[in-house]
Computed example of a mutant assay.
Amino acid sequence: MPHLESHLDPEVLTLLAIGESVATPAEQDHLSTCPRCKAELSALTRTVVAGRSTVLLEDLEAPPDRVWSRISEELGFSTPAMTSGATAVSEIGPAVQTRPTNPSDAGADRSRAGSDAAPAHRRRRRGLIRGLFVLAASVAVVGVAVGGWALTRQATVVELASAELAAFPDHPGAEGSAVVVERGDETVIEVALDADVDPDSNREVWLITEDASEIISLGMLEGQTGEFVVPDTIDLREFVLVDVSDEPVDGDPTHSGDSIVRGALDFA
């Protein structure tokens, strides 16, 4: 079987990406051994999958207008790009439906003859390739722009309260801190502890009501710092005390009574 001396034509790779069986035996053989062509086909296929999937998605959260403005600038569009997220997809949508679903339609298509057939086929392919590469560019820019916007939102942290954790008599010199932050849909307590404790014991973080009538465990503190998600059912204005205890490895889930540090949350 003859082997290709150059890489596959971009048109062939594009048509393969959308599911067209257009590669010759020699091209198939080349594709199976060429890392570059494999990578290009894989990238184009991912773009097609992303485009087709976007058409089917519903109830997506729309990024603000500044995101689409940036996309328009990056792609050189004269009008705002993809305000509904479908412009690039629509360019290739009709072209993807290349196989007739009715056998009689297929026969009718093959029966057409004339000088316009070949040019029309070439125009269809050129339009398809252009559409796919527009989609690829759009997906890349959308990924950067929307991804950056999403990360910025996720990085927004609001501090709600804090506490200085003071040492108990049995642990002189120990000190710690607790900071309550709102991160997205979660309320998190960031705990830090500096203390000499038995390496064979555990440090457990607790929330306690001001009158010590109720207590809940948030989990074990591994190392000197840790983050603990506060259950939605817990009101921190009631469970206002943050406590870190020294817990022996004895299988008893209750508080050992050996608190290392404790402090009351001060809400901003």
Rank of each mutant, 00 (worst) to 15 (best):
V67A: 10
V67M: 09
V67F: 04
W68Q: 03
S69H: 10
S69N: 14
R70N: 06
I71W: 13
S72C: 10
E73T: 06
L75D: 03
L75I: 11
G76A: 07
G76I: 02
G76P: 00
F77L: 12
F77P: 03
S78D: 06
T79F: 15
T79R: 09
P80W: 03
A81Q: 06
A81E: 04
A81T: 09
A81P: 00
A81Y: 05
T83L: 13
T83D: 10
T83Y: 12
T83H: 04
S84L: 12
G85F: 15
G85S: 13
A86C: 01
T87V: 14
A88D: 01
S90A: 02
I92C: 02
G93N: 08
P94L: 13
Q97W: 06
T98S: 10
R99C: 14
R99F: 12
R99V: 15
P100R: 06
P100C: 01
T101K: 05
T101A: 12
T101I: 08
T101R: 14
P103V: 07
P103Y: 07
P103F: 09
S104E: 11
G107E: 09
A108I: 03
D109K: 06
D109E: 06
R110C: 09
R110T: 05
R112N: 12
R112H: 10
R112C: 05
R112L: 14
A113R: 03
A113T: 11
G114M: 12
G114H: 15
G114R: 14
S115I: 13
S115C: 00
D116H: 04
D116C: 00
A117N: 01
A117K: 01
A118C: 05
P119T: 03
A120I: 02
H121S: 03
H121M: 09
R122C: 00
R122V: 04
R123D: 11
R123H: 02
R123T: 05
R124L: 13
R124V: 15
R126V: 05
G127Q: 14
G127L: 06
L128E: 08
L128A: 10
I129Q: 07
I129R: 08
I129L: 11
G131T: 08
F133C: 00
V134F: 01
V134D: 07
V134W: 05
L135W: 07
A136Y: 00
A137C: 14
A137N: 15
S138Q: 14
A140Q: 07
G143K: 12
V144G: 14
V144I: 08
V144F: 08
A145E: 15
A145Q: 14
G148Y: 03
W149Q: 06
W149L: 04
L151Y: 01
L151S: 11
L151D: 15
L151C: 06
T152F: 13
T152N: 12
R153V: 10
A155M: 08
A155K: 02
T156K: 11
T156R: 13
T156D: 05
V157S: 15
V157K: 07
E159R: 12
E159C: 09
L160M: 14
L160W: 03
A161E: 05
A161R: 08
S162G: 06
S162H: 11
S162D: 13
